[in-house]
Amino acid sequence: MRIRSGDAVALGPGKVELLEAIREYGSISAAARSLDMSYRRAWLLIDELNRSLKAPATQSEQGGQSGGGCTLTAVGENIIRLYRDVEVQAQRSCAKQIAELTRLIRC
Rank of each mutant, 00 (worst) to 15 (best):
R40A: 15
R92D: 14
E24Y: 02
R106V: 13
D7P: 06
R41T: 15
A21R: 05
T58I: 12
V88T: 04
V86S: 12
S52K: 01
Q97T: 13
Q89R: 09
C107D: 13
S66N: 13
L44N: 11
R103S: 14
A21M: 06
I105W: 10
L44E: 14
R2I: 14
R2A: 15
A10N: 06
Y83V: 01
Y83P: 00
A95K: 09
A90N: 06
Q59D: 14
C70K: 00
K15P: 00
D36M: 01
A74S: 12
A8V: 14
Q62Y: 08
V9M: 03
A55W: 05
D85R: 03
T102S: 12
S29I: 11
E48M: 09
C70P: 02
K15G: 00
T71D: 10
G64V: 02
K54C: 03
E48H: 07
A99F: 11
I46K: 07
Y39Q: 10
L104S: 08
A74V: 04
Q62L: 13
Y25T: 02
W43Q: 07
A32E: 04
S60F: 01
V16A: 01
V9I: 09
Q59W: 15
A99D: 14
L82Y: 04
R84M: 12
L101A: 13
L18P: 04
I80E: 01
A42R: 01
R41V: 03
L11N: 04
V16K: 00
A10T: 02
Q59A: 11
A95L: 15
T71Y: 01
M37T: 02
R40H: 10
R4I: 11
I46W: 06
L45Q: 08
R23F: 00
A32G: 12
R23Y: 00
G64Y: 07
A10C: 14
L82V: 12
N50P: 08
L18N: 03
T73P: 09
G26I: 00
D47S: 11
G6F: 11
R92S: 05
Q91T: 15
A95I: 13
L82N: 10
R106G: 12
L104E: 15
Y39M: 10
A32F: 02
S5K: 07
E100G: 07
G67S: 13
M1P: 08
K96L: 11
L44F: 06
G12Y: 01
T58Y: 08
Y39T: 04
G14M: 12
A90F: 05
E48D: 05
L19D: 02
T102I: 06
L53W: 01
L44H: 07
V88S: 04
Q65P: 15
G76V: 00
I46N: 08
G69A: 05
